[in-house]
Design a protein around this nucleic acid. Sequence first.
DNA 1: ATAATATGGTGAT
DNA 2: TCACCCTATTATC
Length: 266
Amino acid sequence: MPEGHTIHRLARDQRRLLVGQTLHTSSPQGRFAEGAALLDGRTLQATDAWGKHLFHRYDDDLWLHVHLGLYGKFRVGELPAPEPKGALRLRILCSTHWLDLRGPTACEVQTPAERKAVLARLGPDPLRPRTDPQPFLDRVARSRAPLGALLMDQSVIAGVGNVYRAEVLFRQGLHPLTPGRDVRGAVTSAVWEDLELLLRAGVRAGRIVTTEPADRDRPSGRARRVDSHYVYGRAGLPCRRCHTEVLSGTLAARTVFWCPTCQPEP
DNA sequence: ATAATATGGTGAT
DNA sequence: TCACCCTATTATC
């Protein structure tokens, strides 16, 4: 479930587990054999996350860049590590644990310059401390593109994915097609602040929860997961607030969900 | 056993 | 806007 919250949580967990340790790296699948050989035996100095991008800094300013894409996953466990099977792109071993990476869109060793080039394509990330939202506010204010597309553009704001897009628009009462330039500055600020809140909650919980507890609590018997979103994945079901049927459509090449009553057309 | 699906991104058209 | 890539899990035959 990789949106920004997932990546920041991984950076945090991997920092706690691995920073300062000398690591053994390998690529059982072979697709990252060269990179794994470069990193093998080095000490991890730091981890970092920006939007959906994860970084490790090793000795000599060598960086590992990982982007999970839609399918990528990390798994961890205590030694001994299980026999590698299937497409295991990267395995990292420390003195106590193993860390396996499968299915990432990107897994590569980078120089500082190459890392910088990745960061240059990214907008501000609400999860990074002391981040100035102004570039986000300006991009939205100047754009005719629909807000639902701008939120998915990682150069506008980094870390938001399809679930947070749908949910923040619902929470702020905004129709996905509202042109950016038609959104009042104070409202765009509220979107930013809400994303900050939601993403932080996501890091803490380890999953995306965007509903208020009052909206979430319901008679026992229902899976909690079903109650963790207002509109995402709920096409054809009643809106949790007003019971109007939730609609869906395609925007920025992904399915977007909204309530036509709570999020009136611009 | 096979197909469909998913919270992402890129490069061509 | 579309085709395509990466993989695991779930649904369907």
